[in-house]
Design a protein around this nucleic acid. Structure first.
Lengths: 223, 223
DNA sequence: TGACTGAATTATGAATTCATAATTCATTAT
DNA sequence: ATAATGAATTATGAATTCATAATTCAGTCA
């Protein structure tokens, strides 16, 4: 805390910044199906803003790869195909592996304890079959590792890519076998974290992502 | 070629897309020093556009991290500090390592021949002391590996990060010892590429980037 | 002389307007 | 009935306008 009073500046985000966040969430929730047109005018109405900030926001999202802008024909929800998944997952795996390596060097005992708590919760939600809750814990643990890595640029790149790959379509649909495997993998991950074994954790995270990708491909191929 | 006639659509990029590219180049060339204010009005004049596309472009560049937008106070050239370099380089190294691994699996003999040509040219420019020409060959070889990896998402993430880290300030300033070392490293890199030794190439690229970073830090610390 | 106040100026964020491009739809000709 | 044409409608890209926030600067007072 810098100032003596502890008073922080009033947060005054610009419209376009807020729109970027809200739109990204909307798109991740599949409010508009991938490949469909984004109804700019309707959105302006819904958010009660004019076209200027909305279009600024769409351009930022386009640079992130979440939407696609076709000149003179508007904005479309970027459609992820298998090729894009195939390209994206190795990159995601490399970033997570790096996060694991860095995290080992800096993670505190408190954070490790938290990771263990999340892992236990995951196992519990797996047993009770609560996919949504499991998914939340899963995200929490990966976020924890990213945060422990304490590398803002890594976090940012990871976030950008994860957002791009994680459309609702591919969200929480793993078959039972894969789900069980994922739980096991997480046990191993948290154990490597506890031992602060950077090389092992790095490797585990990489194969974890790789396996998730393989499972996803199977799902997509089957429909 | 899809159509029988071979006629391709007329390229009609929007103003903001062109501005993004031109501004990024300007900023990389240190047309405005890091940390300085970006004179929006002047730029509009220079490019003969109105504020709307210019501001759209600045917002895209802000999401890339090249400029910083302060609400109600305009756009500033993002200043890279040592912490950011420290955070960015491991990520860059991981991405290059992945690129090397993927490239080994797909690179053609023709591409390898090109890589060898670039490496020879680099050595020659090193001997003649032509830093600028050396730098170009260096970029060409790294680009070649990225392209051989044939992973558009990897290319995109790499590009975004490289742009962010490579301000003119840190551009072509290596001391003689580091320069000689870099030339050697490149010989090893192209040799691993020739043998399509994925693990070795991956490792070599990682340490190559790591060494470059160390040299940079030394330069910055000295001034 | 130097620090404070507040008016004038300038810059910024956002809405609106305008020109042009794309799309839709009715009309016509086959 | 169907395809082609062109007018009407709608959407998009970009410029302009407008309200508000920030900055500058002259004037005032200690």
């Amino acid at each position: 805390m810098k100032s003596k009073t502890g008073v922080t500046p009033i947060d005054r985000p610009s419209l376009h910044a807020q729109l970027v966040d809200r739109l990204r969430e909307l798109l991740l929730e599949d409010a508009f199906p991938p490949g469909s047109k984004i109804p700019e005018a309707d959105l302006c109405q819904s958010f009660a803003v004019s076209r200027t900030p909305m279009r600024e926001a769409l351009k930022v999202l386009a640079s992130e790869g979440v939407v696609q802008l076709v000149p003179n024909r508007g904005a479309w929800v970027a459609d992820i195909d298998i090729e894009e998944l195939e390209a994206g997952f190795p990159v995601l795996a490399a970033l997570e592996a790096l996060a694991g390596k860095l995290a080992c060097a800096r993670i505190t005992d408190t954070e490790i304890a938290k990771a263990e708590k999340h892992t236990k919760a995951m196992a519990a939600f797996f047993k009770s079959g609560d996919r949504r809750a499991y998914f939340r814990e899963n995200e929490a643990i990966h976020r924890l590792i990213l945060e422990a890595a304490a590398n803002p640029i890594l976090s940012q790149q990871h976030e950008a890519l994860a957002v791009r790959l994680r459309t609702g379509r591919f969200k929480a649909n793993e078959d039972q076998a894969r789900w069980a495997q994922a739980v096991e993998e997480h046990e191993a991950i948290v154990s490597a974290l506890r031992e602060r074994n950077a090389d092992l954790l790095s490797k585990l995270l990489e194969t974890h992502i790789e396996n998730k990708f393989q499972a996803l491909i199977r799902m997509v191929r089957q429909g």
